[in-house]
């Protein structure tokens, strides 16, 4: 494995950006596009599409299963090591036998992606933000936005607001109510605690918490029942990745509406469109990939089983790729 980067300003290209090589893959960007090359091919993505996907892959630690940046390029998380691929989950590439995949350690690929994200993100552009709430990613190198691309992901051990755990969001902490949720009530539950039970009597306003999120399509953990994780997120515009499941994942639509395109995980063939409105609950089977569309900022509760046993159990046929057989 080789890992090299010609990062700006040491050896920038004409647009001022570094070029990154890891294994057989090379990444370069110009004013509008990211270009990826590998031993059997080449591919381009609009730079805004690429940076939004790259940001999620970095922030989520390659997430559960497959993160497709688009229908060609992406990563498969094996939890400790990661496959980076081109065309592996694209039927045409597979049939033509021009798909390519290479395995890296988690840390090596993460370091490469982090360096690329830092160098290619310009001042004033936030890949986590909704398109209406950030500047342009295009053009020549115009500085950086390290504060945006290195946000800490919230992961509560027990529940947000419990003493010693993650705390609620406030104006003073730099989390004002988002413009899309200006009408969301900001009241708090009434918590009456007897002395000595401060660590066990706790509650907070989850909808207020989500209304103050400054990012989109970025699930964070607010409560954990063993390996059952509540991962709410505020959504607007398009999920920047096409998420390929390696386990069943559940969506609870808390507000407004998201429409999901569901495709076969391996071929990309269309399977369904799922329209989720407030109060709807839907499972995403373990053999699909999905991408969501949220026309208005909405609240989504992503519910995950974080057990690392699940992908192997599905592969061995011990459990169904469906959530429930009925």
């Amino acid at each position: 494995m080789t890992l090299t980067s010609d990062t700006a300003p040491a050896n920038p290209n004409d647009a001022g950006y570094g070029t990154f090589t890891i294994g057989g893959f090379t990444f370069s960007r110009d004013e509008y596009f990211a270009t990826i090359t590998w031993p059997t091919g080449t591919h381009q993505l609009a730079i805004d599409v690429f940076l939004r996907a790259l940001q999620r892959d970095v922030a989520w630690g390659f997430f559960y299963g497959i993160v497709n940046f688009d229908s060609v390029f992406g990563t498969v998380n094996h939890y400790g090591n990661v496959d980076m691929f081109a065309g592996r989950f694209n039927d045409a590439y597979r049939r033509a036998e021009v798909d390519y995949s290479e395995n890296f350690t988690h840390d090596d690929l993460m370091a490469c992606f982090q360096s690329m994200l830092k160098d290619w993100t310009n001042d004033g552009y936030d890949p986590f933000a909704a398109p209406q709430e950030t500047g342009q990613p295009f053009g020549k190198n115009n500085g950086s936005n390290d504060a945006a691309v290195t946000r800490r992901r919230v992961v509560a051990d027990r529940m947000v607001s419990v003493p010693g755990d993650e705390q609620v969001r406030t104006d003073d902490m730099g989390f004002p109510v988002n413009r899309g949720f200006a009408d969301v009530p900001q009241d708090e539950p009434i918590v009456e605690v007897e002395p000595g039970y401060e660590g066990d009597v706790a509650a907070y306003n989850l909808f207020k918490y989500i209304s103050r999120s400054d990012v989109t399509w970025n699930p964070s953990v607010v409560s954990a029942c063993k390996e059952s994780l509540y991962c709410p997120t505020s959504e607007e515009f398009i999920l920047p990745v096409i998420h390929g499941n390696d386990r069943v994942e559940w969506f609870v639509q808390l507000s407004d509406e998201i429409q999901w395109d569901v495709e076969d995980r391996d071929t990309g063939a269309k399977r369904a469109r799922v329209i989720c409105k407030a109060g709807d609950v839907a499972a995403m089977p373990a053999d699909i990939r999905h991408q969501g569309y949220s026309p208005k900022r909405s609240m989504l509760l992503v519910w995950e089983n974080a057990s690392n046993r699940i992908p192997e159990m599905i592969a061995r046929g011990e459990i169904s790729p469906r959530a429930v057989d009925f």
């Binding site: 200006a182 369904a272 799922v274 407030a278 089977p285 609240m299």
Partner: peptide
């Protein structure tokens, strides 16, 4: 913007539109 929450008295259920699958897969 108007944020839409559901309630017992006022909710609108979405649906699964099938292309090539079993709707029960989405529970």
């Amino acid at each position: 913007y108007t944020t839409v929450f559901g309630s017992l008295d006022n909710y609108e259920k979405g649906r699964v539109i099938i292309v090539d699958d079993d709707p029960k897969a989405y529970v």
